[in-house]
Amino acid sequence: MATSTAEPTRRDMLYIATGAATAVATGAAIWPFIAQMNPDASTLALSSTELDIGAIPEGQIVTVKWRGKPVFVRHRTKKEIEEAENVQLSQLPDPQADSARVKKPEWLVVIGICTHLGCIPLGHQGAYDGWFCPCHGSVYDTSGRIRQGPAPRNLDVPDYAFLTDTKIKIG
């Protein structure tokens, strides 16, 4: 088999074009196989939950499921609200005012997932009477803010809205 050296540039161009076209086509073909793992249309359609909060007595926490995760809805007492509001922000690992975390002071809505490694904290426990995570000892206050332990962030607040005085829609 002899090797030809004629027209090296045209030959190289053809090889480069073929290689590039193959790479682009392969990339395009792979995308659907990655995208299929994203939430499907039926999952996206279920992304809001409505909750009647009229029946939750003061001081109680109700847990509802939203997108497969627990959401804590806490009807806070006067004392709890005061505790949450009268904290010096400089004392907090993740400084955030209580007013920035609630829409109405009596109602705290947070995602019930410890920001450390995803366990569900227990309510009305820990030194700040907020939540205590049994997995690794993170302690949250009555505003769901991290006070002690390994968790890096406050409990997340989901998107929610008051439809009426006694009804909220999460998501």
Binding site: A35, Q36, A41
Partner: peptide, 28 residues
Amino acid sequence: AMHYTPNTGLAFDSVEHIMRDVNWGWMI
């Protein structure tokens, strides 16, 4: 197999779920 359910009550529905809801499911 990530989306299919091998159960007589759910198999047909899960295939239709793939065809309708899963991203690119119809193509795959």
